Simulated assay, not measured.
Amino acid sequence: MARLALHALLAVCVLTSGCSLLGPDYTRDERAVDVLDNATDSLGASETYRFESQMTVTAATDSRTERVDVELTGAVDVGDRKMRENATMRGESRRAFVVNRTVYRECASPWDGWAVDESAEESQWVNRTPAARQLTLLQSGSVYWNGTQAVDDEPAVVVTGEPTVDALTEYQDDQSQPVFGGPSIEDPQLRAWIDADTGRLLRTELRFTVTRGDNTATATMTNTFGDYNEPVSIEVPAEARTNQYELGCPGE
């Protein structure tokens, strides 16, 4: 059960996936595509932004249900190619930082060190940030225009998409090995709210189901983005540069 919930949680994090897989059977509403293109351009012109995420994974069998909740907060500085993130799960918080292609991840208790990795991705740096990767998911599968809706009293265009399963599962780690090995992902749906005036991405909701045998897990993720072009402070702690695990955190 815990392993299925973990697989689903990893799948949620594929908000990070950077694929573009279209096919002849997908519907690409022209108005929705125009809105997404505008949002991509607007994000490319933004130097900074902040983000928050609420993730929930619920795994169930006939005899047991397990729920995992994760809260994320962070900030991105595109100009300096820096990003910070704080993740809280089951009462424990862990920090992570990205500086150019170097990733610093705080290890879980009882260890007090940091895992340091070099990303193998060669894409434009901004394309690796949370908002960009949400928009990238909408470049796969079907996408539709769903009118307008207010977000914090501001008019926003609503775009809904059905990302391809490949777009969710083909995210790979630095060793080019699949993140998952076994569970199947079904019915992925992604909804995005985009500022009608500025084209900035304001909010997304990602939902899908993961199955393995008779076990099923549902995953949902709500992201909010804001404070575009406002000053941010992103500094890697000194201990992350001195107290390091070169082969990853113990126990992972």
Rank of each mutant, 00 (worst) to 15 (best):
Q124K: 10
F225D: 12
R133W: 01
A96M: 14
D153T: 14
L138R: 15
R31D: 07
T218P: 00
T242G: 02
N86A: 02
P24I: 15
A2Q: 11
A39N: 12
I194R: 02
R95C: 01
F208P: 11
A120M: 04
V68M: 06
G226Y: 14
E30F: 02
D214G: 02
L10R: 09
I234K: 07
Y144N: 05
A96Y: 06
E154L: 09
D152I: 02
D41N: 10
L36M: 09
V210D: 03
R133V: 00
G251F: 06
V210N: 07
G182D: 10
A120K: 05
P110H: 10
L168N: 14
G44H: 13
G23N: 13
V68I: 14
P130E: 14
T73I: 11
T198A: 01
L206S: 03
G18P: 06
A131M: 09
Q124F: 03
Q172D: 09
W111K: 10
F51R: 15
Y245S: 08
L202G: 03
P250A: 11
T129L: 02
E92S: 06
Q177G: 01
S233V: 10
G199I: 00
D187F: 01
G74D: 13
E71H: 08
L137T: 14
T148W: 04
V98G: 01
A5S: 13
T164G: 03
D197Y: 08
E92R: 14
T224W: 05
N243W: 00
V165F: 02
E154F: 04
L135N: 08
T27F: 01
G213K: 12
S20F: 05
Q124E: 14
G91F: 05
P110F: 01
G44C: 08
E246Q: 11
A150P: 03
V158N: 06
V70P: 04
L137E: 06
N86K: 11
P130L: 11
R67D: 06
G23D: 05
R207N: 10
Y104W: 14
A240D: 05
T88K: 06
G91M: 07
S42F: 04
D37H: 13
D187Y: 12
N146H: 10
